[in-house]
Nucleic acid binder design. Structure first.
Lengths: 188, 188
DNA sequence: TATGACATGTAATCTGTTACATGATTAG
DNA sequence: CTAATCATGTAACAGATTACATGTCATA
């Protein structure tokens, strides 16, 4: 029942998926291995212990289904406490560290944001991401210009890859914001 | 001295840096914390054990420097065996799994490739990356078109982010290849 | 002489990987 | 009946994080 623990990325991925639809450990493994969420582990040694931890923290609750002509399976659902935890996760402002570690976790937060907390939360997250990216990209550009000219070509190109990747992400962020603006406009 | 063990990404990052210039654990920590390689841990609890493992495998060798008026420090150098290991790592063909896990490790390989194995190896790696990315991007596009239309906006946008990021990476790969072509042409 | 940066490490804990183990149900 | 798939889990191990521990050297 201890809530104030740090939840790893896999835990949030599980919470988000379970919020969308209650599922068993096996269902979740199939999602990770068959869809484009393959960056998360689909191994039972990762998922079952993770589900156990989430349950111990009171964020999900599993109920064993054992109907006739059915295999025994335990279906997990997000509790009210779990939902609050996801919302807090989504509402976190995007930091520079988030950018350094790579955008995957922020994008995961965004992917769940609309279902969990509504379009306003999605837009909020995008704005925070845009701000963080602007600073990050410009600092990378400063670093790029300061790089010694005698550096090997591949080193410089690799750095440019990082700059370009973050710039592409920034472009996407603005594109996504525009999509929400349009959606809003279309409704009114 | 056991060589046929799996080396984690941090180990290769250390090997590559040490190949460029012999350094102590503290030097390496500073590189990770001050330059744009912040995605790797700069904590002593990660780096010193990693250096110890590499040394036990015979890939690096540390010598204690203790001159007068100098603090004691252990400087590590890559051995011949270590160099062979980096080369093997760089020459690995790029797989689909490399793309799923994210391009960071492949880009790291590329960053070191020129210093360690020469421009021909860099070009070879880029070609392998280009081939892997073409397949990966087109399969993502197929998945995108097959996505149910009723999906929440943020889910679809997040997926598009992944597609766009990989497309940007593909563009960069071609740009890098062109840079090497030009370099070659400029010399002849 | 005391403060802070240099330099190296260890210990506890957590998470993920790999591999193994178990049993139920369905298809051939 | 037997093989494959469904569904769940455990055990041993490797690696990273966090926090702590130790001692040197320069400088104020």
């Amino acid at each position: 029942m201890n809530s104030p623990k740090k939840i790893p990325a896999l835990g949030y991925a599980l919470l988000g998926l379970l919020h969308g639809k209650p599922a068993s450990g096996y269902d979740l493994r199939k999602i990770f291995s068959s869809t484009s969420m393959k960056s998360y582990s689909d191994s039972p040694g990762a998922i079952y212990p993770a589900l156990g931890r989430l349950q111990k923290q009171g964020l999900i609750r599993g109920t064993i289904e054992e109907g006739a002509g059915m295999r025994r399976r335990q279906v997990f659902r997000v509790t009210a406490k779990g939902l609050a935890e996801i919302k807090k996760w989504i509402a976190r402002p995007v930091t520079r560290d988030d950018m350094v570690r790579g955008p995957q976790e922020v994008i995961l937060r965004f992917a769940f944001s609309e279902m969990v907390a509504g379009p306003a939360a999605s837009v909020e997250l995008l704005r925070s991401l845009e701000a963080a990216l602007q600073l990050y990209v410009s600092s990378l550009n400063v670093e790029l210009k300061a790089m010694p000219a005698m550096m090997p070509t591949s080193g410089r190109l690799a750095f440019e890859c990082g700059v370009g990747g973050n710039q592409a992400l920034l472009d996407w962020t603005r594109y996504a914001l525009a999509a929400y603006e349009q959606k809003k406009g279309g409704r009114s």
